[in-house]
Write a protein that binds this DNA or RNA. Structure first.
Lengths: 339, 339
DNA sequence: TTTTTGATTGCATACGTATTCACTCAAAAT
DNA sequence: ATTTTGAGTGAATACGTATGCAATCAAAAA
């Protein structure tokens, strides 16, 4: 069927007058082989244009040195940033990144099943929910799971998140300090731990402080849904004076709608706050107040987990990092006098 | 070293009372095997939790069904969009996407060398220049190359681009029709075919029409460089009344600087035009006039090429697709009366 | 009834590398 | 001079699958 011809270790061995084992050893750091022999073999290999077949190596060693990375929504710059960092960090760690679309329209992709059969060192899910089916399948395929920006109660998976409770409470406090009277929460994907934690902490902090129950709309972490949600909020007679959006993408959609469809002065008439601190948030057009997730550290922790899970597949860990509030112009910080 | 234990075809064979070949055939569509035998084997396999080892399969067949995708700058939404489309299309085609960072600070990554040893079906470079060294290396590794959004004179590579000459000329004509007197061109990465074609066509069309030679600044296709370039242009005594930026990212940087640092009314006092038609371009804040590159079709063509190159590694092709001008508010279309 | 056909199946081997084991031989220790 | 040591090497085998080849056997053709 296939007629591609490659130079193998056998060929090099023949040409160099040694055994195939010797060639293998010449390319294995720390293997027992004489200085001169190695030099000679390397030279011959170079001359013949030999390259070790990584598939064969992986098959032999039982691991592919590849990490599967499932991503849900690349329209979210936070995940693009993460993916970028991840590709570099994994690269530095000598691991290859197998990217696959994790869900299309909410349903998990079929390809994820096939991916697992590559003897992956680990599976990283970027903001993708973990079904128990998938967890079970990974267990059987002996592929450790690391959730990024999601948690789970499943003990068979690790996770790396930032402290959503603290973040949401900090934002609630910031809004109260700004003297906002009518606050709204724009929720992300229902059922995601990320949204659940932010929503829960936001509502409970407001309630603890004796503030009114916030309005609630669903934006699914996505631009279009968030635009629609914003319209519903702003069309109300008792229009809110502050919206906390569960991520930056929705916040930017909200700003666009508020400013260009309702002519509102965002930051004065209406405060809008996001979550993530995406690069765009700092652009002057948006100047978005938001809660920064430490992407670089989150990625570092993720890669560390992947490494740790190599030896001990069951050494699962749930990492929670601290973020920080970034105040910009889209929210007012001090109470305004009534007009 | 490694103690992971997997169920192999051998195990299934023993359990089902058949040979290993039979098991293999049971999982190979179109193989000669009896209906009942197959059913029995599949059932046994299911029961034991058997999954075929794709590494072994790839080693045997000589191709990994993986495609390497090298990406330079994920800060550019056009490539994010492309990556997104690509991940779905490749998936549908039964191919896996091996993502790797193609260049860090201008220099190609070392990992690209290692990637090639995975018996890739093809290597796709997203807006990354092809050095002759790399081309040679791919030739030896027998991995066909497809350049996306770049061309090359190298006959060992295919390419998919949109017609940059037509695009740039169309924009030049649009600016002239708008009565602009002092036009500037903000260049992308020097030495890239993409920039070369746009620059060449833009300049030559203006010159053919008897317009003045445009100003030239370099923005490297990147936001920060573009902001700096915009400042240099707008600080001039003979400030331009139009800037054609060689991509959307730079155009948006230019809008931000013009509007928030120089207080200019973009679209009236200063026309700014981009290239790509990134999702952001249509946001009301920017309302960017730009030239649309047909990402979906470009990706389809790319995947088609990857398929075609399977059998005939030398059947290289250079595909050029048509784009279209998208006029929005950031440029004026009609001549304005002098104030 | 004999021959032909064609569908199933197992055996053996290939894919290309890493690694264990046993062996050789020179240097060091006794 | 003899034993011990240890470095260096090759032969053999394992990793898990796919497939060419030959063998088997029942059905169909003669």
């Amino acid at each position: 069927m296939n007629d591609r011809i490659f130079i193998t270790a056998q060929d090099v061995a023949r040409e160099a007058g040694v055994s195939q084992s010797a060639v293998s050893r010449a390319f294995t750091p720390g293997a027992r082989i004489a200085r001169d022999t190695r030099a000679h073999i390397i030279a011959t290999a170079e001359r013949l244009g030999y390259r070790p077949n990584l598939l064969a190596r992986s098959l032999n060693s039982g691991r592919s040195n590849m990490v599967g990375v499932g991503v849900g929504d690349l329209n979210n710059p936070f995940f693009v940033q993460t993916l970028q960092l991840l590709s570099h960090r994994l690269d530095e760690a000598g691991l290859r990144l197998l990217l696959f679309p994790a869900e299309t329209g909410g349903r998990p992709e079929p390809s994820i099943h096939e991916i697992l059969d590559y003897r992956l060192n680990a599976l990283i899910l970027l903001s993708v929910g973990l079904t128990s089916d998938l967890a079970e399948e990974c267990r059987r395929a002996q592929v450790p799971i690391v959730l990024y920006n999601r948690t789970t109660t499943n003990p068979d998976a690790s996770s790396v998140i930032s402290d959503n409770m603290v973040g949401a409470r900090t934002i609630a406090a910031h809004l109260l300090a700004g003297g906002h009277q009518k606050i709204a929460y724009m929720a992300g994907t229902e059922g995601s731990s990320t949204n659940a934690q932010r929503e829960e902490a936001f509502f409970s902090h407001l309630s603890q402080q004796g503030a009114a129950m916030p309005l609630l709309e669903k934006g699914e972490f996505r631009m279009e849904a968030a635009s629609a949600a914003t319209r519903r909020l702003l069309a109300r007679p008792d229009r809110p004076d502050a919206i906390f959006c569960a991520n930056d993408v929705m916040a930017i959609a909200a700003i666009n709608v508020a400013r260009y469809e309702y002519g509102l002065d965002v930051g004065r008439e209406l405060s809008i706050i996001g979550y993530d601190d995406t690069p765009m948030a700092s652009w002057p057009t948006f100047s978005l107040t938001t809660y920064s997730q430490p992407a670089a550290r989150m990625v570092s922790e993720t890669v560390r987990l992947v490494h740790n899970l190599q030896g001990m597949p069951s050494a699962h860990e749930n990492v929670v990092l601290e973020g920080s509030l970034v105040v910009r112009g889209s929210s007012r910080s001090v109470t305004m006098k009534p007009a």
